[in-house]
Design a protein around this nucleic acid. Sequence first.
DNA 1: TAAGTATTTAGACAAATATCTAAATATTAA
DNA 2: TTAATATTTAGATATTTGTCTAAATACTTA
Lengths: 84, 84
Amino acid sequence: MNKVFKALNDQTRREILNLLKGKDLTAGDIAEAFQITKPSISHHLDILSQADLVTSRKQGQFVIYSLNTTVLDDLMQWIITLKD
Amino acid sequence: MNKVFKALNDQTRREILNLLKGKDLTAGDIAEAFQITKPSISHHLDILSQADLVTSRKQGQFVIYSLNTTVLDDLMQWIITLKD
DNA sequence: TAAGTATTTAGACAAATATCTAAATATTAA
DNA sequence: TTAATATTTAGATATTTGTCTAAATACTTA
């Protein structure tokens, strides 16, 4: 869970997750949605991957990223446990 | 939400929230549960307060902290929105 | 194979952060 | 009012983090 909270503690990374809601995107597509450089986005994607919040697969020269909602379920459970 | 994610991005602060589950505690009580100094705990409590994850009231020379679950509901909603 | 496109890795740097000690503030009790 | 207890504030420091540029890697196509 540590890596999940760390990954979520950044506005850009949270926006990346929102971008991936419903549709998968290449690293390049994601990078174009922001003003920061591609290496920076790549780094953010790495942190999201480490937290297992996104998964990636290589398709030719592209890397396609997807949202992984499994970890979000874990996070929900963490909150519920804290609440009661 | 930024302050919420920031506040949750620390193991000690997450443990403080767990300690406050069900029962209110003074700053001193909370500090005793950890190996770090009282000023450090005080700082963590400040960050949790800023995120509105805890509330505090003064009772004599003590400051009593409580968990505020309202923000946790907001966080749940954020996750749900991301999921569908 | 050489050139072009997509992405990541490496290294540097400024800003943010968690921690500490020392001091200040607030409250209670002698 | 003085002493003791509870908590916070201030200031310092080492570590982490987000960003950048330059270079490396991977794949496609001419």
